[in-house]
Design a protein around this nucleic acid. Structure first.
Length: 549
RNA sequence: GGCCCGUUGGUCAAGCGGUUAAGACGCAGCCCUCUCAAGGCUGAGUGAUGGGUUCGAUUCCCGUACGGGUCACCA
């Protein structure tokens, strides 16, 4: 009776590992090419942290001529949700992130290093587990969860390190014959890794983001194959990232503390250790304290939140990129029209500690992103958004030709308007440009000039003597000045400021009256452009409505 | 509690032994031949703390405090 016998008893059908080593050869990529991956569990809707990871992984693979793959980590059967893979695939697609390999929907995949879904790789893990058993570096453990719990309590009471290691590892050196006997008797067991590490010794590790970290060596005999035959995260990570020939493991920094274990595993299996990059999580501030942004408490943790709000994916991506590499902001400023793909992302420029998610800043990024869009693009995006979230807005946009005119106000030139930061702002911004919506309006937000007679006088005179739909902007404005002068208002604001006593007000006050009459509001984009879009009939209509109100 | 990691303005942060300690968002003020969004200018607001090392420390070392992560047949 030897290890080989035991290995065969446990995994009689497992292929030798050489089969897999040959099946998944080293990738033939150019020097420096990075193979990265996004490896989520399909347990719910996509999290902003996942998006963050995928943006980074995608960028790095892209700029080095490498490969970015999507691997589904579904080894925990209990936590699965229905359509979990689809949720991930589609969320990521919304952000324009493409995978070179991996799952493309619930059941299909692309690439030669699959399967890319862990539950489908069961026999691969078992082959490697068998190999470790043969080598005497893994063994079955018959402890029940209750037994383990008891052990932990004992350790805690005695104030010693908890876990399954050294003398506490009950089945580590259990007589082989007895082990075989137990198995033959049908006793339940799991497979544990036999660590040769020494907790007293330190290992030096270099993390691409965190820098040098020293840890004690791993000496825990962790579970590698669970009772259901599937691997634990740690084991799957070692096998998959090796076989998929991943060069850079980019993952959230909650994993740093498992690095010694992972190194132990890689070394024992004879695998080359990948580079690790542990990213700081995105945080949220609450009661003056930082905490990780959470799916349960924070709506903005869900990627879908940004779609509902109508924040363009590009804006979210740029904001996240900015958290990841803060020099992105300067790059964007210097290269306003370049595609993100031209930005050179660097892992080692990432911050070591987590940044608080700043929605206000995101909105500012978004505002700038949107300001660069053409009116056609804005129309398309807003329409798409409205169809999903706002019925009234959808109706307003039905006359595309008119809507394009509205979106064209102060847009397309060198100094585009920056008043939209999310699509959900749009309706309110353009509401008064639509005849039937405006007509429902009863409120005029007059400012300095509020006297009804004075208002009527200004409007009447304007419409009768000064308004001409064929005027260009300069002529149009000169006439308002003239009108102001005639009625006792200063033609220039500066002049008014010098001698406020000599005037009733200034041009600004007069044009505000016209603005309010035409839009109901005292703050709007350029009045001249608005009037161009509204057209003569509607202008006269609205002015009369205001006079006769 | 053990083990790891971190701490520059309200937020994101640059610099990495000698700087008037960048920049962005936010905030306040002013300017810009109509308001607003912008844009321009100006301003307020910063290296947790105590010790070292050094001619000099935000930058290097140690302690303290505070914050974060992790200690599952979850990932």
């Amino acid at each position: 009776m030897d290890y080989k016998y035991l290995a065969n008893l446990i995994f009689p059908d497992a292929k030798p590992i050489s089969y897999y080593e040959e099946k998944y050869p080293e990738r033939n990529l150019k020097e420096g090419a990075m193979v990265t991956r996004y490896a989520p569990s399909p347990t719910g809707y996509m999290h902003i942290g996942g998006l963050y990871q995928s943006i980074i992984g995608r960028k790095l693979a892209e700029q080095t001529g490498g490969v970015f793959l999507l691997r589904i980590e579904d080894t925990d059967q209990k936590r699965q949700i229905e359509n979990g893979v689809r949720e991930i695939v589609e969320s990521v697609k919304d952000f324009d992130i493409k995978f070179d390999e991996g799952m493309i929907n619930e059941t299909e995949e692309i690439g030669n290093y699959g399967p890319y879904k862990q539950s489908l790789r069961k026999e691969i893990y078992q082959s490697y587990a068998k190999y470790l058993i043969e080598q005497g570096r893994a063994y079955p453990c018959f402890c029940t969860p209750e037994e383990l719990e008891e052990m932990r309590e004992k350790q805690e009471k005695a104030k010693i390190r908890t876990g399954y290691y050294g003398v506490w590892a009950k089945y580590r050196n259990y007589p082989l014959d007895d082990v075989i006997e137990k198995i033959k008797n049908g006793e339940k067991y799991i497979i544990r890794f036999k660590s040769m590490g020494n907790e007293e010794k330190k290992i030096k590790h270099y993390d691409v983001i965190k820098g040098n970290i020293d840890f004690p060596e791993n000496d825990q005999d962790i579970i590698i194959i669970k009772a259901d035959g599937l691997p634990t995260y740690h084991f799957a990570h070692a096998i998959d990232d090796h076989l998929m020939r991943v060069t850079h493991v980019i993952r959230s920094d909650e994993w740093v503390s498992s690095v010694p274990l992972h190194i132990d595993l890689f070394k024992t299996l004879g695998f080359k250790i990948p580079k690790y990059a542990h990213t700081a999580p995105i945080m949220k501030e609450e009661d003056g304290k930082k905490r990780k942004i959470s799916k349960r408490k924070d709506p903005e943790a869900a990627v879908s939140y940004y779609h509902k709000e109508g924040i363009p994916s590009q804006a979210v991506t740029e904001y996240l990129l900015n958290i990841a590499n803060s020099n992105f902001e300067n790059w964007r400023k210097a290269n306003p029209d370049k595609n993100i793909s031209e930005f050179n992302f660097e892992l080692n420029k990432m911050s070591v500690s987590g940044a608080i998610f700043d929605l206000v800043k995101l909105l500012d990024v978004s505002k700038n992103v949107i300001s660069k869009y053409s009116k056609e693009k804005i129309y398309d995006e807003v329409f798409l958004w409205a169809q999903r979230y706002d019925e009234e807005l959808t109706e307003m946009l039905e006359d595309k030709e008119y809507a394009l005119k509205v979106f064209g106000i102060e847009r397309g030139g060198v100094k585009p308007r920056k008043d939209i930061s999310k699509w959900s702002d749009v309706k309110n911004n353009i509401y008064y440009m639509f005849k039937d919506k405006f007509e429902k309006n009863e409120i005029y937000e007059f400012d300095k000039i509020t006297d009804k007679e004075e208002i009527s006088k200004i409007l009447t005179l304007y419409i009768e003597k000064y308004y001409n739909e064929n005027d260009n902007k300069q002529e149009w404005f000169d006439k308002i000045k003239e009108l102001s002068g005639v009625l006792g208002y200063a033609k220039e604001v500066k002049e008014y400021k010098l001698n406020p006593e000599s005037y009733k007000g200034h041009v600004g006050d007069v044009s505000t009256v016209i603005r309010v009459a035409l839009t109901g509001r005292k703050n709007t984009p350029d009045l001249y452009e608005i009037m161009q879009v509204l057209g003569k009939d509607e202008i006269i209509n609205r002015i009369n409505k205001c006079i006769n109100r």
